[in-house]
Design a protein around this nucleic acid. Structure first.
Lengths: 203, 203
DNA sequence: GCAGTTACTGACAAAAATGTCGATAAGCAA
DNA sequence: TTGCTTATCGACATTTTTGTCAGTAACTGC
């Protein structure tokens, strides 16, 4: 009369693996359904664990959200830093822009940016601030960030990359175009526009 | 022994005025603190009315959010449509872009776009879809939307305008620049980039 | 094996958010 | 004034979401 409850009664992970499992589940939810669906019960269910397990590892549901932000920021930054710069300045520029767009192509990264911007809580902004400044100093400053022109180009490129990652597919489809249309058009604009600007400045 | 409760015991508005009062309060909250703070109690408090009053007019808190989206979309669209187009094609382009950026300069509009994009619920997207298509048909199609180039230019301009409205001030400050730096740089890019593209095409 | 540590869980408690209801009072029309 | 409609409200009920706790079970080292 005993019911067979053989199928693996309980999974026990290392603390790191468990946290990772939960954060990955949370990221899936963020991408699929937006930040407002990062509820304790939903995250736990998506991760395949009990609510209490999530709290055991993160303390509060807010802790999960903060940890997720930090993880995604780290991944985004390391993705941006991983680029290697060609020698030819023109090719370097193209590669950098391509790399930037790739980083925000993954739906999560762009949504992360929007999430951060919409969420006022300043304690979270500290993390971003540091990350962004690191990227700017290391990657960009490694070349020649002294020209204001170049800094402006970076600023606009980043905004456009995020914008395309976030709204590109939706707006493209709204116009009856393929989903990557916005990306293609944006890259073309940056190519011609920045080139032109560079020519005017000098270099 | 009666406590003086003279100070205006109750405000009674027309249904329209009351709805408007509540929606304006909700929009303030959206801009200041993001979508997640559009809670019943918060909205009611910001509007200076009781929770039950909000529900009396909108049924549910979700009704408030939907109504707010629709109101903001209407305002955004009418703002976009209000533009008048100069004769000179070059001036017309500049004016259109300027107008576009103005429309998303108001913090609310850009946040609305991000909110809509992050919120999956498709029932809400129908409204946007219609609004966007209306804008595109009427305003843009009134000129010459047949060229694919032009449509791409519009697509990118819209994305950049939203991106600047949403992230421009924050990212500019992160770089230690004035808050409108992103806007200035973006406008310059569009000016030179689109001009270049137009030259290549013809016109 | 055996003991100790701790990831994991269900059941429960607490808090927060939403929504209901009957009473009240502001305006309007007769 | 008087009566009617209904916007408004406080108090309460319901639902949703978060968090607590004590017990269970999976691994580790002995």
């Amino acid at each position: 009369m005993s019911i067979s409850k053989n199928t693996s009664s309980r999974i026990r992970r290392s603390p790191e693996a468990s946290r990772e499992n939960i954060l990955i589940a949370a990221e899936r939810l963020l991408v699929r359904q937006g930040p407002q669906s990062l509820r304790l019960a939903d995250v736990a269910k998506e991760a395949g664990v009990a609510n209490a397990t999530v709290l055991h590892h993160f303390g509060t549901i807010d802790g999960v959200q903060t940890a997720l932000m930090e993880k995604m920021i780290v991944e985004l930054v390391s993705g941006l830093m991983a680029m290697d710069v060609p020698d030819d300045p023109r090719a370097a520029r193209a590669a950098a822009i391509q790399n930037l767009f790739d980083a925000f192509e993954t739906k999560g990264a762009a949504r992360l940016a929007a999430w951060l911007e919409l969420t006022d809580e300043s304690r979270r902004l500290r993390t971003v601030r540091e990350a962004v400044q690191t990227v700017i100093r290391l990657k960009i400053g490694a070349e020649k960030a002294d020209e204001a022109r170049l800094e402006d180009a970076i600023l606009v490129s980043v905004i456009l990359a995020i914008g395309v990652g976030l709204f590109g597919p939706t707006l493209s489809e709204l116009l009856g175009k393929p989903r990557d249309r916005a990306r293609v058009a944006a890259l073309r604009l940056l190519e011609t526009g920045l080139e032109e600007a560079a020519r005017k400045t000098g270099q």
